[in-house]
């Protein structure tokens, strides 16, 4: 298909001046990428789909048997898996909502000129540039019941954030918010600065108050970029593994990706893990699809 497009370009067009034709140059850039994608993305995707219908275990030499939809049936009726999904959903909602609020709020604060604006923006962006493992370890120290600064500052005594099953998930979510709110801020800032200044002037002339201007002008015009931030953060939050795995061992923080990891690499139940991975993939695709539809509708205007 790709070559059909290329053939329509007249290869003689600008080729004479150079040794290589445009076609050759394009192929030199494109072919390695295509090969890489096939070997490392598309092939494993199809292969794992095949495994998801078998009882294959990577840790044993037993002959592999085709089990049809048995893996999917088992997983979808397993109460533990459902609780993993509920935990994940809670985590995604709390974490993404928090990031959107904090990130957009910061963007509103930064969307004016003041001294050291560049420096402040850079400092605010630092968290998202750190490794998740490092962030997790640090926040474990911050949350430490005996000498962590958080309990000290808020006067909470020896409250055990990460080992209390009721708060552990939220503690992890707060860390995620701290780390990724700057990303939302960055996209929001881009959106805010793209709103033409004359629209605000028109609104001022039209005697609109600041709240009215914010809800009727700013928010609708920034919403497409906010939606992109929302898609990215939801997808990421859905597959969170590192922070939660490092920070807490509570069953109430066992996100679906942690469950998947355990099933695949602790129980070596490879076939079933593939099936679970596919279930997660379909869910992420469904959520993203909803967002993208909304985004396209917003873009049409």
């Amino acid at each position: 298909m790709a070559t059909a497009v290329m053939n329509r370009l007249d290869p003689r067009s600008r080729a004479a001046a150079r040794g290589w034709s445009d076609l050759t140059i394009r192929n030199v850039f494109i072919i390695p990428t295509i090969v890489f994608l096939i070997v490392f993305n598309i092939f494993p995707l199809i292969y794992s789909l095949g495994y998801s219908f078998t009882d294959f275990s990577a840790a044993s030499n037993e002959p592999v048997q085709f089990v049809g939809l048995q893996n999917y049936r088992d997983l979808l009726t397993d109460e533990n898996i459902w609780s993993n999904f509920v935990i994940t959903a809670k985590y995604v909602i709390v974490s993404v909502a928090g990031q959107m609020l904090v990130g957009f709020g910061l963007a509103l604060l930064l969307n004016r000129s003041f001294a050291f604006k560049g420096l402040v923006t850079t400092l605010l962006l630092l968290p998202m540039m750190m490794s998740a493992a490092v962030v997790g370890l640090f926040w474990r120290l911050l949350y430490s019941p005996s000498w962590g600064p958080i309990n000290y500052i808020f006067g909470l005594g020896d409250f055990a954030w990460l080992s209390d099953p009721d708060t552990a998930l939220y503690a992890v979510a707060i860390t995620d918010i701290w780390m990724w709110a700057p990303f939302v801020m960055l996209l929001s800032l881009a959106g805010l600065s793209a709103v033409p200044k004359h629209l605000y002037e028109a609104a001022a002339i039209d005697r609109a108050g600041s709240w009215y201007t914010f809800t009727r002008i700013t928010l609708p015009l920034v919403s497409p970029l906010l939606m992109i931030a929302l898609i990215f953060r939801t997808m990421e939050a859905f597959k969170t593994f590192d922070i939660a795995y490092i920070m807490s061992t509570q069953p109430t923080t066992e996100l679906i990706s942690i469950r998947l990891y355990k099933q695949a690499f602790q129980q070596w139940d490879t076939g079933k893990s593939c099936a679970l991975a596919y279930i997660v993939l379909i869910m992420v695709l469904a959520i993203t699809n909803m967002y993208v539809k909304y985004l396209n509708r917003a873009k049409e205007r």
Partner: peptide, 10 residues
């Protein structure tokens, strides 16, 4: 007088 349909810009 010359058909230049296939000529380059230069």
């Amino acid at each position: 007088g010359e058909d230049m349909s296939d000529w380059t810009v230069a």
